[in-house]
Design a protein around this nucleic acid. Sequence first.
DNA 1: TTACCTCGAGCTCA
DNA 2: CTCGAGGTAA
Length: 676
Amino acid sequence: MTPNERAAWLRTEIERHNVLYYVHDAPEIGDSEWDVMFHELKAIEDEHPELRTQDSPTQRVGVAPVSKFEPYRHGVPMLSLDNAFGEDELRAFDERIKRVLAIDVEVEYEAELKFDGLSMSLTYVDGVLQVGATRGDGISGEDVTTNARTVRGIPLRLQREMLGKLEVRGEVLMFKTVFETLNRDRVARSEQAFVNPRNAASGGMRQLDSRLTAERKLNFFAYGLGFADGQFREVHDQFALMQTLRTLGFPVREETRVCVGIDRLIEFVANVQQSRSRLPFGIDGVVIKVNNFDLQKELGFTARGPRWAVAYKFPAEQAFTILNGIENQVGRTGVVTPVAELEPVFVGGVTVSRATLHNYQEVLRKDVRVGDTVTVQRAGDVIPEVVGPVLEKRNPDSKVPRIPSVCPVCETPLIQQEGMVALRCPNSKGCAAQIQCKLQHFVGRNAMDIEGLGEKQIERYMNLNPPLLTDIPSIYGLKDHREILLSLERMGEQSVTNLLDAIEASKNRPLDRFLFGLGIRQVGDRTAGDLARTFGSLDGFMAATYDRLVLVPDIGPTTASEIEEWLELEENKKLIDALLKAGVVPTEPELPSGNLFAGQTVVFTGKLEKFKREDAEALVMRQGGKAAGSVSKNTSFVVAGPGAGSKLDKATQLGVQVMTEAEFLDMVPELMRNVE
DNA sequence: TTACCTCGAGCTCA
DNA sequence: CTCGAGGTAA
């Protein structure tokens, strides 16, 4: 046997034993025998580095660090599921399914554990793990392949021949026992312990050095399919898919069940909930999917996610703590928000010390008083909530919180608009809190993106005597105060230069970012983009009238009048003048250079050969068209490349014209294809 | 909202 | 070594 053959044999054999261990929980050999094989393989690879492969088990201990993670665009978006709390919402889900399918028989559901970890997309090409990526915003995540290779249970090579591309999805998580040992070790080395297994797992996947990821001993369970090159034609339901994934070498939990009808489903959910603490890892609910793929297809998707699945979340964990006080926070628009200051309490895996009380109507409705023992919970999402007071523990002398009559920061009398619950500080120009929020928004990442001007620095510069920052234009005056900046703590030559450079660089941000940065009410980054495209220039925008504004697609009467109001205010005109005087010249958006696609909405799906998708979309927009993300009846046509998935199905279903990339290119004269 | 990782740069002490 | 900022995840 040549070293090459021997190495290949060892690799297959080691992976087979890994699968027996991690997938089937039925090892055939002991740890020491496994070690012997592993070390022999390692020795061969060390001696003949050219024999080392990416799917070799030796890669599981990690490789040299990468410098950063590359963005990874998902071929099929990783959507999120709707949540359901309690039996009622589960029944409502079932009703909706039956209604949409127009059937009266019991639906077959597949129910699986909802792991408390982080989701991963694993792409295999010809059976070998090619890419492991995080979910990100669902459209694109990060390529963490080297880290993924160290996760036990993620097969580096599939157990069966499988030609073509395959994307499997699942969850990376840390077992409770691993978490405890890891923390014991960390404490022994006087390192900071992790707060919960989820964070330890999530942090592990964020390591640039995959050897450190390997030390976290992470696990993986598969739960679904992103994309398959047609390899799964024989598989017609989710449960069968899970079994097939298992035969391919993916760990799949045994708890997965098929439940016929909502009553069986609710029984199962209750069982899982009851026994969840006995599981070796954390879960936060049960994922329920309509089992049959044909029915799934029929149900389709909403804008948010699949209509055929729901995430049942366990009731939020609750804890008792003391309400130490109520802070009144003043936001960018002057709205005063009461925030509960809580005695820190560990609930739902984190320490909660603050929670919004939204408004005083809520405070009164809940009848919480300072000094009360209150119930706090962290519901399915991430926002902690004060549920209410524990009345038995109330001090009889406690007083109902007083609704502030003046701004806690600038002491201007607060106003309450007709029909609104919110209290507002009307001193938009002089209130330090509002100014600080406006500054933060203006320099923020989606606006002018001035690096080095964070919350702390803004606060610091505003509180100097005399203040360096007083309003938005004063940002551009910082360069005249180099000495003062240098005299501040932790501001050396380099920091000051970097800050001033970043401020200079922000002067030519695109118009849409600039408009967003102004913080006009109702104008988020989307609307700012619409405005920039419609009016083309700052002057154009400043001259906009209500009548013109309501004509902008996606801008309604409310937004239009907010913008009109903003434009009419003298102080805002002065603000723009001051910024222009300071040298701010927003870059005007590229106007459509043609009208080839005027009025058309184009959707790209699948992989494009000659174009990057963004470039193709930019081309459509330059030619006066709109590039949309999803197919609807308003779509003019769909350009489908290889690997097109649900969007293609949707297009066929709606009878929308579909063309190939080549056909699309034929529509575009050579000259117009150039991408600047 | 909280927790984690990474980076650049300033600060501190040898 | 420590801090602040920036990014990401749920």
